[in-house]
Design a protein around this nucleic acid. Structure first.
Length: 946
RNA sequence: GCGGGUGUGGUGAAAUUGGUAGACACGCUAGACUUAGGAUCUAGUGCCGCGAGGCUUGGGGGUUCGAGUCCCUCCACCCGCACCA
């Protein structure tokens, strides 16, 4: 019987479906284990070989845990709301729900092909009303809560209202964006509209003015990555910042907990570092500079209060609220045009462009609270509205950016830190001795900071403050294909939440998906939907992609629940995700928002854990090789560049990019060169696909020795993408080699967290392994398995494999597992082992990696039930005892010989024996042996003095 | 600039606590079988050298009996953040 994966795999795929092998129950005596993959956005391009890498790893781990006796939750679903489907709808009129459905079906087919052990009964789609009902429900909870900084917990907004009614908002320690204070009396006489505006400054989901990338020509709002150099990526039209009323989530309230709890997680240091960076905690002082001849005060935040004596001017963000109030009449024109200039610049430009200092003087002055001097107030684009208070006290003597600004505009510079004791310190390090600083002079920077903070608080002009870089997330999208906000507005524009009974608020049918005038969501046009609740108008913005993905892992626990997002029983049983596998591209956004929502739900008592993802592994990207001809010689001696798509008309190629030569690998020689005749073959092959025509001889180097002209192809690693013609579909690999082979080959490629190029050249090795493994059970294609008692050697080979593979699975080193299987099979083959006991155990060991072939052999071996429900083989050390040990013999650390000695020999006996070896004598010569080091079981080293 | 990561044969890689560098594969070379299929099997394969031997984990230096692994320093590439007060 020959190994035919296509038959075996089709058979078991069907059988498993029939028996519901991978169905998981929420009721079990077994310990739970939750293995989760980041669910995919179902794009029109389908899966390529890079996507399943993480899924295969997690599937192996899930199957392993099942064999080890755990009740394993291993679900899959779809992040089904998203911009591409909407874009596609605008272009083609196909409803996003329909294109998403098509794409989901294709994904499902591709996933099924690979043999994953997902429990598809638990599938979730974020765009399904029965799912987004609960996304809306969580949103309403956020809307109806504020954050108490004293208890470090979310609390109902109704309690806050009670506080307002009794004592206004004085002395409140809560997360907020409220500037003004008010008394209980003042609160009571406020109109509904005013109250609504105040409460927005406390709610965890709230409305505020936010800035969006507005493109007038396209009549739409663009995402950051759709804007390049201040122009829209599509069309190249100008993009400007536009103020719009937007929903936001007050994630900043949770900054401290998001930071502190990182320590409890088993994530990589790199990932934790990224999150810490993003949260960006800094401690310093908040204080005020009074504006001269005015009642205004400018609030600033500084981490270096010690440098106040060197603050000779202030810089405000051009968008700062006070700018228009402060500006003097003679500077008004200058300031206005500068503000226009800054508005025209995208965030990316403003931050990443080569440092060219820009700024204007407002004409106004503020008073330095310590020197008492009047300092000029400037505007500069290097100060950001959203960071800190949007204003800084500039200290050109100790800050590089302030220094450059002062230099450019001829402002006063005072040295306040003497760094001569720290010649190697970086400019931003907080070290040195204070000079020219009144009472601080002579202090070390660290002491000066403390002294100044005390002084500031003593004088009552400011307070100690912790600042976070983390910003509240913009939660509004002017789009159709997202969750509708369960919010309506009354005639006063006051936001009224829908009730739970009114959820889900379902998206209406739509035919025209183009944005409505003013950059509004196309939902505005569906008046019957907007006005469905009499006297009220529904919010027409929708939620962003990260809404649905911030809690989907909880829904898997109880996906069909109609009364709750998941039952208490399910949540208490599954608790949290034990292992989460996904790409680094979600390192910050998705993981941060999920943690935030989870902590919020924890505060409300809905989930039993404070963190959603205990352990996290980032799989690397699978890249493709790109083949480029970047030195093609033209007749005039210039270098030819261009893109392969341009080769449709060869004479139109222009300088710009290297020429991409897709699928050229098979035509290259060992030095990656291609000769003229080989290129013609390639050309004809490509020509069929791309209708390329033209005279090629002009691109070849002419060789001097008369051999065939050639050029050299440059090989690089690049992302897989449709536009690069380098996408590899897993279906093709599975069709040719089988899913077992595909799975093992992806693991064999290298460490899971490393990115690596896809290359099918090595797949034959894994294919041969599976055939060899199959062949162990057969003799001349006849089933041939022996029932004898295994020999010591057979046991030893098996248990070596059990130990190595089990250890390696536990540390997610799947590539070395595959090697270990290969070695084991090579060894068993060498001694012609066909022993049932051995093969049966090995088969279970291999089952997580190659679920199909092992299931087939499990049944051929006469076992009942599935191999995937068998018991994992126990490692038994007694089979590993060996009577002889091999030792490398080194002289001065260099290996000179290898000896085998009885394991009973003492170090002394080994030493004496070693001295008699020829190789040792040769290398020791007349010199004296100073020391002999015997590391038991490892090696022997002779130290010889020269 | 800051933070994180990577660098080992022709290629993908292994070496888990400082202990035989290159396991396991791909490729390549030679041979066997087969009247050619891109099948299978055997042997060889880091580099230099006929050989003894020498050299070798991005470069340089150090600690150690012993360093891919630890320390210092420099270089290259990748990822994330970035005028962060």
């Amino acid at each position: 019987m020959l190994y035919h994966p296509e038959n075996i795999e089709a058979k078991w795929r069907k059988e498993w479906k029939k028996t519901g092998l991978y169905k998981v129950s929420n009721h079990s005596n077994k310990p739970k284990y939750y293995v989760l993959d980041m669910f995919p956005y179902p794009s029109g391009a389908g899966l390529h070989v890079g996507h399943p890498l993480g899924y295969i790893a997690s599937d192996i781990f899930a199957r392993y845990k099942r064999l080890k006796g755990f009740n394993v939750l291993h679900p899959m679903g779809y992040d089904a709301f998203g911009l591409p489907a909407e874009q596609y709808a605008i272009q083609t009129g196909v409803h996003p729900a329909n294109s998403t459905e098509t794409n989901v079906n294709r994904y499902r087919e591709q996933l099924d092909n690979i043999g994953f052990s997902f429990d598809w009964n638990r599938e979730v789609r974020t765009s399904d009303p029965s799912y987004y009902k609960w996304t809306q429900w969580i949103f309403l909870k956020l809307f109806n809560h504020y954050y108490d900084l004293v208890t470090q917990k979310a609390a109902p907004i109704s309690e806050l209202i009670k506080i307002f009614e009794t004592s206004g908002n004085f002395h409140l320690q809560v997360a907020n964006s409220q500037d003004a204070t008010f008394t209980a009396e003042e609160w009571k006489v406020m109109s509904d509209k005013e109250k609504d505006a105040v409460l927005m400054n406390y709610r965890l989901a709230y409305r505020k003015i936010g800035y969006v990338n507005w493109c007038e020509a396209l009549g739409t709002v663009l995402a950051n990555d759709e804007v390049k150099d201040g122009l829209s990526e599509r069309g190249g039209y100008p993009v400007e910042k536009k103020a719009m009323m937007q929903w936001s989530l007050r994630i900043t309230a949770y900054a401290e907990r998001l930071l502190a709890d990182l320590d409890t997680l088993e994530w990589t240091d790199a990932l934790k570092a990224m999150q810490r960076n993003w949260i960006g905690k800094s401690e310093g002082a908040q204080l005020f500079f009074e504006v001269a001849q005015s009642h205004q005060k400018i609030e600033i935040f500084t981490t270096r209060p010690d440098t106040i004596f060197g603050s000779t001017f202030m810089v405000l963000a051009p968008e700062h609220d006070l700018v228009d109030i402060l500006v003097t009449t003679d500077q008004a024109e200058t300031v206005k045009s500068y503000k226009e200039y800054v508005a025209s610049r995208s965030d990316v430009d403003r931050m990443s462009e080569i440092k060219e200092v820009t700024g204007v003087f407002t004409g106004a002055y503020a008073t330095n609270p310590f020197t008492g001097k009047n300092v000029p107030i400037w505007l500069g684009e290097y100060v950001l509205k959203d960071y800190g208070t949007g204003a800084i006290m500039a200290v050109p003597g100790d800050d590089e950016r302030d220094y450059n600004f002062a230099k450019k505009f001829g402002l006063e510079i005072i040295d306040i830190v003497d760094r001569t004791d720290y010649p190697n310190a970086a400019p931003h390090e907080k070290v040195g001795k204070m000079i020219n600083s009144d009472f601080l002079t002579g202090m070390e920077v660290k002491d000066a900071i403390t002294a100044m903070l005390n002084k500031i608080e003593e004088r009552g002009i400011g307070t100690r403050k912790t600042n976070y870089k983390l910003r509240d997330a913009n939660f509004s999208r002017q789009r159709y294909w997202g969750e509708p906000f369960p919010i309506m507005y009354n005639h006063n524009g006051v936001a009224i939440p829908l009730t739970t009974q009114q959820l889900p608020l379902i998206l209406p049918q739509l035919e025209n998906f183009k944005p409505a005038p003013g950059g509004k969501s196309p939902l505005v046009r569906v008046e019957s939907w907007v006005n469905q609740f009499e006297g009220f108008q529904l919010e027409t913005d929708t939620m962003p992609g990260f809404a649905g993905s911030s809690w989907y892992f909880l829904r898997y626990m109880d996906p069909d629940n109609k009364d709750n997002f998941a039952s208490e029983q399910a949540l208490n049983y599954w608790q949290d995700v034990d292992l989460y596998v996904g790409g680094t591209e979600h390192a910050v956004g998705h993981l941060m928002y999920s943690r935030f929502w989870h902590k919020f739900l924890y505060d409300l008592g809905y989930v039993p854990t404070t963190e959603p993802f205990k352990k996290l592994i980032n799989q690397g990207m699978i890249t493709a090789y790109g083949y480029y001809a970047d030195h093609l010689k033209m007749p005039d001696g210039s270098i030819l560049t261009g893109n392969i798509k341009d080769l449709v008309n060869i004479d139109e190629i222009t300088a710009g990019n290297p020429v991409r030569l897709s699928y050229i690998y098979d035509y290259l020689d060992s030095q990656n060169r291609i000769t003229q005749s080989k290129f013609k073959e390639y050309w004809e092959h490509i020509g069929k696909d791309y209708h390329v025509d033209g005279n090629l001889s002009k691109y070849f180097w002419i060789t001097e020795d008369g051999s065939e002209p050639y050029f050299t192809v440059n090989i690089v690693q690049e992302k897989m993408s449709k536009s690069k013609f380098n996408v590899q579909n897993p279906d093709e690999i599975v069709a040719r080699y089988g899913a077992d082979c595909f799975r093992m080959y992806e693991m064999f490629l290298g460490p899971i967290e490393q990115s690596k190029p896809w290359d099918t050249k090595g797949i034959d090795g894994v294919n041969r392994f599976l055939r060899k493994y199959w062949a162990l059970y057969f003799n001349n294609n006849e089933w041939s398995v022996s029932d004898e008692k295994p020999t010591g050697e057979e046991y030893k080979i098996l248990h070596t494999a059990i130990k190595k593979i089990t250890d390696d699975i536990e540390r997610f080193s799947f590539n070395t597992c595959v090697s270990a299987f290969m070695m084991c099979v090579n060894e068993l083959k060498r001694i012609e082992c066909n022993n049932r006991t051995i093969l049966n155990s090995l088969n279970i060991l291999l089952a997580p990696f190659a679920p199909f072939i092992t299931e087939e052999l499990h049944h051929l071996l006469g076992n009942d039930g599935s191999v995937h429900e068998a018991a994992y083989p126990e490692y038994d050390e007694q089979h590993m005892i060996q009577d002889a040990v091999e030792y490398p013999v080194c002289v001065n650390g260099k290996k000179r010989d290898v000896i085998a000695v009885a394991s009973s020999m003492t170090p002394k006996e080994i030493q004496d024996y070693v001295m008699t070896l020829d190789a040792v004598k040769r290398h020791v010569g007349d010199k004296a042996v100073q020391r002999v080091i015997v590391v038991p079981g490892k090696m022997i080293n002779l130290v010889v003095k020269e």
